[in-house]
Design a protein around this nucleic acid. Structure first.
Lengths: 122, 122
DNA sequence: CAGGGTGCTTTCATATAGGAAACTACTTCC
DNA sequence: GGAAGTAGTTTCCTATATGAAAGCACCCTG
């Protein structure tokens, strides 16, 4: 009796897995969700704003991650012709489609904390 | 005129960011979403099944990731008292609460592919 | 008793990510 | 002129993640 678990073999599953990989590779790294989350709240922010808001990030990482996000059209970078030149980072319309995903992420994280709290008090 | 972008300063935002960090640290790495995704489809799978289903993973990584997931009570490991000893990995009830998140991840990834396809054909 | 299957662990090596600090360049305020 | 702010880049270093391959222990089948 050969019992092979042929689970992933349907096209739908393959596509699903591919899709998960795609999403995660675009949003990989320690900071992207933070940056996007901050931009969701802050709408339009300058480089130094983000450096302050995203706790712990350094300028190198911030710069690199913003470039990644810009390449994938999730974030827009607009140079403002102001007194000291400033740059505005904002989510693109497309970047905003990440909101439900980030909401789920946050929701799950909050419930996770609660479940730990509960299991400790039992 | 001091214009400081005080965006993240509300408790709600801090909690939200914390929650995102929590979720991502639990599900960090290249393979966890794949493993969980596969377990969602496959219900109960043995080690060798997973090794086959999760394309590209090696036994070391699989072992390590499964231990991580078990520690966080997302996956259960049950040794079966069968002829050649077998082990069953399955999502716990708690692990199944990740389904909506994984669905969002997959959904976004699929739409991402479609948006690339569209932008190329324009 | 050899081959193959299950379920891992160990070792060795490399790749990538991430961080600290210094530096550039330009401007404006005091 | 010097300090400070904006927006980064560059260099150097370390930690962590990942990978390939082999080994181990146990059992069954031929």
């Amino acid at each position: 009796m050969k019992k092979k678990a042929i689970v992933n073999d349907t096209e739908v599953c393959q596509l699903r897995m591919q899709a998960i990989s795609d999403t995660m590779s675009i949003l990989s790294g320690k900071w992207k969700f933070h940056i996007i989350g901050t931009l969701i709240e802050g709408n339009k922010l300058g480089f130094m704003d983000l450096l302050r808001e995203v706790k712990g990030i350094g300028s190198k990482m911030l710069s690199k991650e913003l470039q990644d996000l810009e390449l994938n059209h999730l974030v827009s970078r607009t140079v403002q012709d102001t007194k000291p030149i400033t740059v505005q980072y904002a989510l693109t319309e497309y970047g905003e489609t990440l909101s439900p995903l980030i909401d789920e992420l946050a929701k799950w994280g909050i419930e996770y904390r609660q479940s730990i709290y509960k299991s400790k008090s039992v």
